[in-house]
Simulated scan of single mutants.
Amino acid sequence: MTEIANQDTSLTAVERSMGNRDIAEGAARTAVLKRRYNASVDDVWDAITTPDRINRFFLPVSGDFQVGGSYAFEGQASGEILACDAPHLLRLQWTPPGDRGYSDQVEIRLTADGPDATWLELEHASVADVFRNDPDTGCYGVGTGWEGPLHYLGEYLRGTLPDAPSTEWYTFDEAEELRLANFRGWEWAKIEAEHGGR
């Protein structure tokens, strides 16, 4: 097995942007992450919609996996599956744990780039203030938070992750995660400044 690449290899692979769109909760801001994977669109789609595969690079997930069904990531968000148009579009209601009084929306769009490559675009939309990035105060938005899972998706598609649930091989390294969050946070802070809260 090839060694798992350090997350630094993904820092320049992600295209970051912000935008606006309406969701069920109202007028929302969005953080958009886009990156290219060397895998077919069908393989990427299967990886992000099959519970046993999701569990290899992200978190354990359970639920009723059809439009109108619900899902829950262990220790993370839960919600309803709003749209599922294989192999191009997955839209989820994204409700953080605890009673925050709102739900976000996460949409993943896949576009084939030839037979063996895929562009993945993940858009996280929210009416809440979940986008601010200020590494000086340790404040990191949702865009920063999605970069790790997208890195490990790439490693999973390359075949470098162990064939086991992520809870069995991933070890949280606080210092390393803080270093990465600082880099990503500054990149997102620049994007937020360019977007200007529009």
Rank of each mutant, 00 (worst) to 15 (best):
M1N: 11
E3P: 11
E3T: 13
I4C: 11
I4P: 14
N6K: 12
Q7D: 12
T9E: 14
A13K: 13
R21W: 02
R21G: 01
D22S: 14
D22W: 12
G26P: 04
G26N: 02
G26F: 08
A28F: 09
V32G: 00
V32Q: 02
L33Y: 00
R36M: 08
A39H: 06
S40A: 13
D43A: 13
V44S: 10
D46I: 03
T49P: 02
P51A: 06
R53N: 12
N55P: 03
R56W: 01
F57R: 05
F57K: 03
F58Y: 15
L59W: 11
V61S: 08
S62H: 02
Q66D: 11
Y71N: 05
A72R: 12
S78V: 00
S78K: 09
A83M: 05
D85C: 01
D85H: 07
P87G: 05
P87F: 09
H88M: 07
L90E: 10
Q93M: 07
P96V: 04
P97E: 15
P97I: 04
Y102I: 10
D104H: 05
E107D: 12
T111S: 15
T111Q: 15
D113L: 13
D113M: 12
D116W: 09
D116H: 14
E121C: 14
L122V: 08
H124M: 03
H124K: 02
A125C: 10
S126M: 10
S126N: 09
V127I: 15
A128W: 02
D134A: 15
T137H: 14
T137V: 15
T137R: 15
C139Y: 03
Y140A: 10
Y140S: 11
Y140G: 09
G143P: 09
T144K: 01
T144R: 02
W146F: 06
P149R: 01
P149M: 02
L150S: 07
T160K: 06
L161W: 08
P162S: 09
D163E: 12
S166F: 01
F172S: 09
D173Q: 11
A175D: 15
E177Y: 10
L178F: 04
G185T: 04
E192S: 07
A193V: 04
E194D: 14
G196Y: 06
G196W: 05
